[in-house]
């Protein structure tokens, strides 16, 4: 059971209050009709499955009902940060490779 910091409620809450919604930062193409079939299929169906840092979209379902992002390590399950919609992650696979904080 994860312990997740809700960036809107401002405190850690139990996993039972949340629902995971898949990979974060999957933006819907602005002009879908201009997308090729391949581009649209990429947006619809293809997701990363990294061993290590993963940015995920979660919703605080039984709390404030806000969506937010989680940077989670898929091996240790450690949550390295949570951040609001529209914000960028501070911890990425690249930043860790460069010797950023772990």
């Amino acid at each position: 059971m994860l312990h997740i910091f809700c960036p809107y409620c401002g405190e850690h809450r139990e996993e039972a209050e949340f629902r995971p919604k898949g990979q974060a930062h999957i933006a819907r193409p602005l002009s879908p009709e201009q997308c090729s079939d391949e581009e649209w299929a990429e947006y619809l169906f293809f997701r990363d499955n990294p061993r290590g840092i993963h940015h995920e979209l979660w919703v605080h379902a039984t709390g404030c009902r806000k969506f937010f992002n989680v940077t989670r390590h898929t091996v240790s399950y450690e949550i390295l940060e949570t951040y609001k919609m529209g914000e960028k992650p501070k911890v990425t696979a690249e930043s860790l490779a460069k010797g950023g904080r772990s």
Binding site: R13, E14, A16, E17, T62, G63
Partner: peptide, 10 residues
């Protein structure tokens, strides 16, 4: 004041 789960409800 906190919105949370209550048993299997909210």
């Amino acid at each position: 004041a906190v919105a949370t789960t209550f048993a299997k409800a909210t």
